[in-house]
Computed example of a mutant assay.
Amino acid sequence: MSSPAQSSAVAGRSATEYRIEDLAHASGATVRTIRAYQDRGLLPTPERRGRANVYRDTHLARLRQIADLLDRGYTLASIKELLEAWDTGRGLGGVLGLVAEVHGPWTDEQAGRITRAELNTRFGGSPDDDAVAEAVELGVLEPIPGRDDEFLIPSPQELSVAVELHAAGVPLSAISGHLRELRGQVEQIASRFLEFTTEHVFARYLGHRPPTDADAAAAAAMVRRLRPLAQQTVDAELARAMRTFATRHLQHHLGSDTPLTSESSIPMTRQVDLPSETIRSVERLVGPENASAFVAAAAERELQSRTLDALVSSNNEIQQITQTG
């Protein structure tokens, strides 16, 4: 019978070993990327054997972990903090559970597939390459690698809405334009809801970077609990607003003097195009998720400033008239 030391030595020799080129092939990362990760301290130091570095399954697992976190939108700096917490024994189970919970589906809707021929049929039978390209750009359709005639449909419900609107006579260009405008407004709602819940709920769990395993697990449980609330709130408010405005529109078109909007109604909004460089500058300053709110706040502040200037100017003119009189 072999001793524990002998068994350990045998296990060590039988463990999979990789040269850097083999590790790159197995992980899908490039040799250059692996070396960059080593330089940044994201990968454990490999064993030096002669003039070559020897990598093991732990390096492969770490590369896959990094790739997964990058796909979920984490920066390399954030990933390094998480991995350092793991390496010092703090544990990543709760953090990765939180990541999975947030990155998981926020709807019960199942994705579907559709061929190009089926797509043409559903939209009247005539091919429209520009409309398909627009749908791909908006994410309504996603190309399937190796299948030029087939698409993934992330939200079949959203595509069905477009089909019904087109059948009712709405041009495809108008549908895509409306979706772009609607998406911007919904993203503002989502951003505001997250700011609200972070301030009042999640701040207590996410005060440390990275959070402790217990706090991350508690935050993940809270995400599961609060996940339906945003959808329920939007559904209820949308139903209320649709009833109010549909009634008002009907009365207006039936000859009533009822205005389509009022001071007490929900404010009407429209999309305003800004130079791309301006948008990029704002995103660099406050982050993409806060760009819309920042522009709105800046515009509001400018309006208030001009109002104050106008009031001061008006008061000065009155004083001048009074003094002259």
Rank of each mutant, 00 (worst) to 15 (best):
G124A: 04
V95R: 09
L69T: 07
P275R: 09
R147F: 01
P267G: 02
E142G: 04
L70K: 04
R248S: 14
L42I: 02
L172W: 10
H166Q: 08
T107R: 05
S313F: 02
T278V: 13
E283Q: 09
S2G: 07
R248Q: 15
Q231P: 01
E300A: 14
A26N: 05
D68F: 05
S8A: 15
E317G: 02
L308G: 03
S2A: 12
A296D: 00
Q320T: 05
P211W: 08
T45Y: 11
G177P: 01
Q304S: 13
P44F: 02
Q231E: 11
A77W: 11
L152H: 09
L260V: 06
A218R: 15
T233A: 10
E84Q: 14
Q271S: 13
L206H: 13
Q304V: 08
A296Y: 01
Q304D: 09
T45A: 14
E84I: 02
H200E: 14
Q323H: 08
N290D: 08
S7P: 02
E21T: 14
I114S: 03
Q110G: 06
S276E: 15
S191Q: 08
R280W: 04
R225I: 04
L43V: 03
E142W: 04
W106K: 09
F202N: 07
F202P: 03
L98C: 05
V163P: 00
V282G: 03
S292Y: 05
A219W: 01
I321Y: 12
L60A: 05
M222W: 11
E300T: 08
I79W: 00
I175Q: 03
S78P: 02
I266M: 09
T107L: 07
G94L: 03
G184N: 11
P46A: 10
L159P: 02
L206C: 11
S314R: 00
I66G: 07
S313W: 02
A111H: 05
I144M: 11
E137R: 12
